[in-house]
Design a binder for these strands. Structure first.
Length: 469
RNA sequence: GGCCCCAUCGUCUAGUGGCCUAGGACACCACCCUCUCAAGGUGGCGGCACGGGUUCGAAUCCCGUUGGGGCUGCCA
């Protein structure tokens, strides 16, 4: 048997859809394991939108999830409009063979007539008129009698009664090819053997299969994978849902976490769901894919991402954070960056991060001349019993102790005890004064990194701006 | 409306006639740990849509009902 050829056929929408990403991953895993080919064909009959510069985003997005254009398994990208002549030629062959016919009814006329005769859609009125081509005339496919059986690798056999399928349009009145035809002709031209795509295409599959057969080619193996839906259980859409793969990349989701999560939507890797791509590639089977729609759950994605972040080495984590740190530096010219300080605090950030983009926001106080004080948490932390005393005494204690995490901690423990407070309670006002927030990385490590002078300076600066009881 | 698909905890899933008193993960709750927040640990809550069959036995097979979704363009 020849090596299988898979394909994905995204349309150029300006971003790459997460649903498309999952389908791409399914195709990629199969192509890899089977030693086949993964073909990327960007589909729009509009030549303008088929320009490569419009679609670099798709290439980049695929590369992000591990599908690299320079991999030998990868072929393309192709652009549908490159093959426009072939689409038209195929349509003409169908006409010559009597498998398609011209129709001079406009869309409006079809609607009127259907209404008048009480039928659904196009009634095949021009079927036997023997019309030739002409301006405004569309070429329609002559749907044969009988049944069309789609053999689907995910769902088994799906039977369609051809009587329920109307004679669909192949060529528009202006002679340009319709998507359905272009799609089939391209698949044939590119010798595609396996069409794995989302379930929304299942109802159109019998039409395509009939086209393959009419064109004298054996149809491909089909596989329709379940839809990705939102909390309303509707197909995720650009309008209402965050569907751009790029937006997740930009927010600091790890590609490995994203690919792993996407694969689990409709498929289960086995006992553990956090698995390396190599095992996905080895284990993924279309026959194991679920039949029902899957909810794209941000919370679970976040959990996957946190897990993947924690599995990074500290060095890897630091490198991974860099784009967001660089962006933060650019927007905070008054900050004095110290890479060694970030590296030192990084393990604590890593343990807490859900996405990489959060990193700057939790370490900013170490590099800014002054912490960004949140008024609400400030007044809350300082209004507690003994807060003012704790702050005042800390200034003295910190001025006298050795400047290591351990020494700072013991010095502060003494202050807390003197005020009859638990450490957790006592640290709150100091934390807010120094970091600007009530939550963040461990306090004493942070203070050590900040330095004695700046710590004391921030504690002293406190009472001036706020009401301290 | 017509055609098609689907139906296990809130969510993603395991389950392919007896291993099911239905397993795991996320979320949620509680407790432990703890300098905040996390992370980690332990435990808990929670499901086979319904009704008929078939069978010694059904989450698993069949039929129906209900519910959800998709498709139904001279869009892609």
């Amino acid at each position: 048997m020849d090596a299988p050829r898979f394909r994905i056929a995204p349309s150029p929408t300006g971003f790459f859809h997460v649903g498309g990403a999952r389908t791409a991953l399914y195709n990629w895993a199969l192509a890899k394991r089977l030693g086949g080919t993964f073909v990327l064909r960007i589909e729009d009959t509009d030549a303008e939108r088929n320009r490569s510069e419009w679609n670099q985003g798709i290439i980049d997005a695929l590369a992000w999830i591990g599908i690299h254009a320079d991999d030998p398994t990868f072929e393309g990208p192709y652009f549908q409009s490159q093959f426009a002549d072939e689409h038209v030629a195929a349509a003409h062959r169908l006409h010559e063979a009597g498998k398609a016919y011209y129709c001079d009814l406009t869309g409006e006329q079809v609607q009127e007539r259907a209404k008048a005769e009480g039928v659904q859609g196009y009634g095949g009125w021009s079927r036997n008129l023997g019309l030739g081509p002409g301006p405004g005339r569309v070429l329609r496919f002559r749907v044969p009698e009988g049944q069309t059986v789609v053999r689907d690798a995910v769902r088994g056999e799906v039977v369609f009664d051809n009587a329920t399928i109307e004679d669909f349009v192949l060529l528009r009145g202006n002679g340009s090819p319709m998507f359905l035809l272009a799609n089939v002709v391209d698949d044939i031209t590119m010798r595609i053997t396996d069409v794995i795509r989302a379930e929304e295409h299942l109802p159109n599959t019998p039409k395509q299969q009939m086209l393959w057969e009419a064109l004298g080619v054996e149809p491909p193996r089909w596989g329709h994978v379940p839809l990705l839906v939102n909390e309303q259980r509707k197909k995720i859409s650009k309008r209402r849902d965050k569907v751009a793969l790029e937006s997740y990349r930009d927010e600091g989701y790890l590609a490995d976490a994203m690919t792993n999560y996407l694969m689990t939507l409709g498929w289960s890797p086995g006992d553990v769901e956090i698995v390396p791509w190599a095992s996905v590639e080895a284990d993924f089977r279309l026959g194991d894919v679920s039949h029902s729609p899957a909810f794209f759950d941000l919370k679970k994605l976040a959990a996957f991402n946190g897990e993947y972040i924690r599995r990074l080495s500290v060095d890897e984590f630091v490198v991974a954070c860099e784009p967001w740190l660089a962006q933060w530096r650019d927007t905070h010219p008054d900050a004095v960056w110290d890479q060694a300080v970030f590296v030192a605090i990084a393990p604590h950030v890593q343990l807490r991060a859900v996405t990489l983009s959060e990193a700057p926001g939790v370490v900013d106080f170490l590099f800014l001349p002054e912490p960004v004080l949140d008024e609400a948490s400030l007044s809350k932390a300082l209004s507690t019993e003994g807060a003012a005393d704790v702050v005042a005494q800390s200034i003295d204690a910190f001025g006298a102790c050795e400047w290591t995490t351990e020494a700072i901690k013991s010095a502060f423990e003494a202050v807390a005890e003197r005020n009859g407070l638990k450490l957790g309670k006592a640290q709150a006002p100091v934390r807010v004064a120094v970091t600007g927030r009530t939550v963040g990385p461990p306090l004493f490590e942070s203070l050590e990194l900040l330095g004695r002078d700046r710590t004391i300076e921030r504690l002293r600066a406190l009472p001036a701006g706020v009401q301290v009881r």
